[in-house]
Structures are given as structure tokens and as C-alpha cells.
Nucleic acid binder design. Structure first.
Lengths: 338, 338
DNA sequence: TAGAATAACTTAAACGGTTAAGTTAATATG
DNA sequence: CATATTAACTTAACCGTTTAAGTTATTCTA
């Protein structure tokens, strides 16, 4: 006895239409070789029965899966979530579906992801990887599946990659402070291993240089990207009693910590000290004072990567491998002219 | 000429090992019927070649796909992103992979998602749907694929659902204010169609009742869940010149707007007016003063749903269909005793 | 009007696995 | 020692499609 709830197959449709399953397949794929009448009859039956071809079988028989893998360190991070949205906007418009893989920077899970990518399900991959090992990249290349890296720190020609121009962002932030008349500008680093903080710092240096402001190592401190880190970093800065009128923090969280520390010392922001952050997180519009900061083009990061992947999937071989996206200055109330 | 880069199949392994592909399959699936030597030889060859079975073929041949679909209104929303993380934690541990579907509350995309769910790829579905139409639910049921709803407002026995106990949360917030001695407590609603705000309001009413505080309609205002909405709602409240010593806002964003409005009127938080929010968004720890609020068990929402789905997938038929998760009071600095 | 070309199909071989059923040789049983 | 049982395979059908190759009947061409 046949199970009633069994899903309809192409055979059922063929039987109902009184043709072979080959004919149904041609109709399904809009290929020639079927008369108008048969085509219409088959389509009608398909419609009536609500038949949908089994994608697994289609994919196995050589058709595409339309699956794109997204490997990502942490989904709950707004930064990555927004990138995903950017990716999704482009890919879903082109008929692709998204598969999510969290690695949590866990090598074991990373291997699992590889094994999966290697099983024929996915056509292309977008890798969001803050920390990337050489081994990972070589493995990805071996897979022979088109892929693009997001937020990839290196400028090599082995992989396609899209990243934010952190140096330009750092330059922009510093130049802005300089344009407001500041010349004693402190910088608060993120964590030691953080390459993005490093690039922002380079932008800071380049801006100082451009405007002939001598670099003062005493104005450099280091946090860890957290509010507490920024707080401590600023306290340290204060303890050297080196004067400054502005601070550029490598991210917004540290800027909040710095502002808290300043307030505790009786210093007002921006009246006594100007503070600029980086990232433009949600809280920076809500804080007191609203934080002037550098906005990363996060959605764009996803969109550009998706567009590149789309071109790779269609067989193109792009000459440019490395894409750098520009940041934007968001002027709010935490900086002012001196 | 065979293409060199062609992926290895079970046939290749069989040939290399000098056995039939059936034997290889038995080894692959840890089934009996193969001698120790053959098993070891095959495993060694598989290891050496880095062979991975094609999941499409496996799935088609009756094995599972291990795919779970996640349908979600907006990935870039932290709320949903966190739920996903909760889901991912549980499901990936159990060998499942996640497929993401954004509907953007767009009926056309919704239909696309359905068509996809209907093609044999996914074994189960978790639907995060703030606005749900009856039609959608009936379609889901027709699909015969196990599914659970997250953040589902209704209490019916047709579908499995997990939601936050908003009423209990509203009660908790209000009771907390009452415990601090407040009796004139204003409430700011979210948008009109928002059922979660409605439930929070019911909790507010229940708390008033429990402590014999008469309900005063003049203390109720309505925002739209945004900071601006909260700002306006509070201004309206103020314009009635009805006295209050505390405000319960249906979400944190509105609480920030309310605090801004209060400050403009020269009222201090919490010295003159206590403010409590709902959601515990990131900014509420960073604001001035740090906002006392009600935390939703967001990760848990994802985890519980995933666990339920897991049980459904294993064929269980759970007696409870509706799961309500408790909120938690986060005491910070925006409320104080009167 | 015979032969070629074409339209409209059908047939069957793939795709890469799983698995029930069949085969063979070795071992156990009475 | 003949027979039943079992272990260790092999064989082939099957999953639900696509598609190249084969088959007709019809139309076109010379």
C-alpha cells in the first residue's frame, strides 16, 4: 500500500498527464521538444497538484543547488549579522539560498565546515574570518569552490577579499580632529592582535604626518576594545600628565569607557576633551554626548562580497582580487573646535 | 579523458580498495558485513584520498539531509541574531546545519520560502515570525515537516511555539517599581499593532491590581518603540500635568526617549522620576544613567525551540505545545526608592 | 513520390549514494 | 560427513531528477 502522504514525484505527474517523465522534465525546464498542448496540460496538472521537483534529485542530476555557504565566527555579533543581511539582499535576489556555519574560532568546528563544503551541497562560499590561518586558506583553495573573504587583513592575490579601509578610516578620524584645531591627539589601541586597530593607527600616523604634527608616543595607550579597556587606557593616559585635547579611540566601546573616565576626572566632553570613536554602533547615537565616530560600510561589505561571488559563480575571472571599502565620518556631539 | 579535478566517488574508493561500492558504503556507515581487514583498508584509502561522500546522493538515497530551515524577518536585528545563535548552539551540536530564509514580511518571498521547504531539502523548520497570518500556519502544517514557532503570540494547540512571557515581564517591572514605593506609575505603549507591548501592559495592570493601586488612564501614553516615539509619548504625558513618579516603557528605546524628554523638562532620573525599560538592549548598560530594564531570555528562546524541534525530529509527540519563557529584572541606576 | 529533415515524443543511462536480496566459502551442527 | 548456519561479501534495484540517444509520425524537399 502506497503511503498517502508521500510526496508527488515527476513520475506521478507523468502518469497523470499520460506522458513520459522525460517530457515532464522538459516542460519543467522550459526546454523545447514538447507540443503546446502537452506543455499546457502538464503545467496545469503540476499547478493543480502543487507538485515541486525534488531539489536533491535535481542537484544530483547535475543541476545547481543554489546554495551559498556563509562561514562566520559569531552570528549574534551585530557586525556579522549586518554583513549577512547585505549578502542576503544580493544573493536571494539572484535565487540563491544561504547556509550558515558558525566556527566560533573553534578548529574542530572549522574542520566540520570544511567537510561539509566538500560534500557537493554548496556552490560558493563567503567567509567572514577575523582570524585566518594560512592552512584554512589553502584548504579553501583546494576545495575548488568559488569563495570570497570578508574582513581579510592581507593583501595577497591568492584569494578574493573585501574589507573596510581601516587605514583610511583612521586617517579620516584624525584629520577631522585636526580640522577642528586639535594638535594634541591621543590614540587608544584595541587588543594587541587586532589588525584592524593597527590599520586605524596607521591612518592616525599618516594624518599627523600630513599636517606636520610630531608623533608623541606618550599619547598612545592600549585598551582591548571593551568599555572597561577604554576606561583603563584613559586613566593611564591621564596618569602620565601628558596634555591632550582630543582622543581617537579605535572603537566606540572604548570611547564610552574613555568618556566615563574623563567625566570622573571632572573633564567635560567635548568642552574639555573631544572624543571620536570607530564603528558607529547603535549605542553611539544614544549616548551622552552622542558620539562622533567613523561608520564602517557594513551592509556594503556584504553586498560587494555577494556581487563578487555572483560574478565568480558565472565563471568570470576578475582582475582585481582585493576590494577596500571607504568609511564615513558621522558627526555628532563629542568633538568640538578648539 | 577523465577530468583530474573530478571529485572522488564511492566507486573510485571501491576500485582502489578492490571491493564493491556496497562494501564501501557499509564501512562508511559503520554497518556489519565487512571483515576487519577490508574495513581498515577502506578506511585507510578514504583517509588518504580525503574522500567525502556526496551528501546530495546520500540524502536522495533516503538518508537525512541534516538541514534545518530558519525563517526570519530580519537577520540584522540583534534580537533575531541572538535567537539564531541559541538555535545554532543546540542544533550544530546535534549535527544539523542551518539554512537561512529572510522573508522581510514580503508575501512573495514567503511563497518562495514555502516552495523551498517543499523540495525535500529540509528536515525541520524554525519560524521566527512576529506577524503571522493564518494562511501561513496552515501551509506550514500541510508541509508535514516538523516546525516550531518562535515569538508566536497565540496560544493554540495547532503548532508548537516558544515565546517570552511578556505579561509576566510587565508584571515584574511594575511590581519592582511598586516595591520601591511608587504608586503613580505611567506606562508607555509600543506601536498599536504590537501584541508584545499589549502583553506587557496586561502585566502592568495585573501588578496594579495585586497591590490595590487604582488604574489611571491618564498615565497611559503610546509611542512606537523608537526613541523619538518615547520622547513624544512622555511629552504628552507631561502635558496632562498628571503626576507620576515612575514610568514603565514597553521597550528600552522608548525609555531613552522618555529620559531625554524628562531631562529637557529639568527632571532628573532617577531622583525625580524612575524609569524602567524592557529588552535590555546593549545601549541600556551604556546609557546615562544605566537603564534598569527587563531582560528577555533571547538565547534561551532559540535553545528551547531547537530542543523541541530535536525531539519532534526524533518522532516524539510532545504533550505541551506552548512554551513561555520567564524574563529577568536587570537592576541598574534608573530607578530608586521614594 | 521516395528520401531527408524535423517535431514530438520515449527510453534509458547517468548522478552517487543506500540497502535488500543474492551468492559464495567457511564454520558449526547433528 | 551431509546439511544448516553464518560471515563476508557482490549485485542490482532504488531515490527523483536530467539529458543524450533512440523512435515514430509528419512535413518538407527534389
Amino acid at each position: 500500500m502506497k503511503k498517502l502522504k508521500d510526496k508527488l514525484t515527476i513520475n506521478d505527474i507523468a502518469k497523470l498527464a499520460g506522458v513520459s517523465k522525460g517530457a515532464v522534465s522538459y516542460v519543467l525546464n522550459n526546454k523545447p521538444g514538447v507540443s503546446k498542448e502537452v506543455r499546457e496540460r502538464v503545467l496545469r496538472i503540476i499547478e493543480e497538484c502543487g507538485y515541486k521537483p525534488n531539489k536533491l534529485a535535481q542537484a544530483l542530476a547535475g543541476k545547481r543547488t543554489n546554495f551559498i555557504a556563509l562561514v562566520i565566527p559569531d552570528i549574534s555579533d551585530v557586525f556579522y549579522a549586518k554583513i549577512i543581511k547585505g549578502v542576503e539582499r544580493i544573493l536571494s535576489k539572484n535565487g540563491y539560498f544561504l547556509n550558515l556555519y558558525s566556527t566560533h574560532a573553534n578548529p574542530e568546528k572549522e574542520q566540520e565546515v570544511f567537510d561539509f563544503l566538500n560534500t557537493g551541497f554548496v556552490e560558493g562560499t563567503i567567509v567572514m574570518a577575523y582570524h585566518i590561518e594560512k592552512k584554512f586558506i589553502d584548504k579553501m583553495i583546494d576545495l575548488k569552490i568559488p569563495f570570497v573573504f570578508i574582513d581579510y587583513p592581507y593583501d595577497d592575490d591568492k584569494v578574493y577579499s573585501v574589507a573596510v579601509d581601516n587605514e583610511e578610516g583612521g586617517f579620516k578620524a584624525t584629520e577631522y580632529l585636526i580640522s577642528l584645531g586639535h594638535r594634541k591627539i591621543a590614540f587608544i589601541h584595541g587588543s594587541k592582535e587586532a589588525w584592524d586597530s593597527e590599520f586605524r593607527f596607521r591612518g592616525y600616523l599618516r594624518a599627523l604626518e600630513k599636517y606636520d604634527i610630531p608623533f608623541n608616543a606618550k599619547l598612545i595607550s592600549r585598551g582591548d576594545f571593551t568599555k572597561e579597556g577604554g576606561y583603563k587606557a584613559l586613566k593611564e593616559l591621564l596618569s602620565t600628565s601628558e596634555e591632550f585635547t582630543a582622543i581617537f579611540c579605535a572603537n566606540d566601546h572604548m570611547a564610552f569607557g574613555a568618556i566615563k573616565a574623563l567625566k570622573e576626572e571632572g573633564l567635560r566632553v567635548p568642552e574639555d576633551v573631544s572624543v571620536i570613536g570607530f564603528d558607529n554602533i547603535e549605542a553611539s547615537a544614544l549616548s551622552n554626548p552622542p558620539l562622533t565616530t567613523i561608520m564602517q560600510p557594513i551592509y556594503q561589505l556584504g553586498e560587494v562580497s555577494a556581487k563578487i561571488l555572483l560574478r565568480l559563480l558565472s565563471g568570470e575571472n576578475l582582475e582585481t582580487k582585493r576590494y577596500l571599502l571607504k568609511t564615513q565620518l558621522i558627526e555628532r556631539k563629542s568633538c568640538r573646535k578648539v
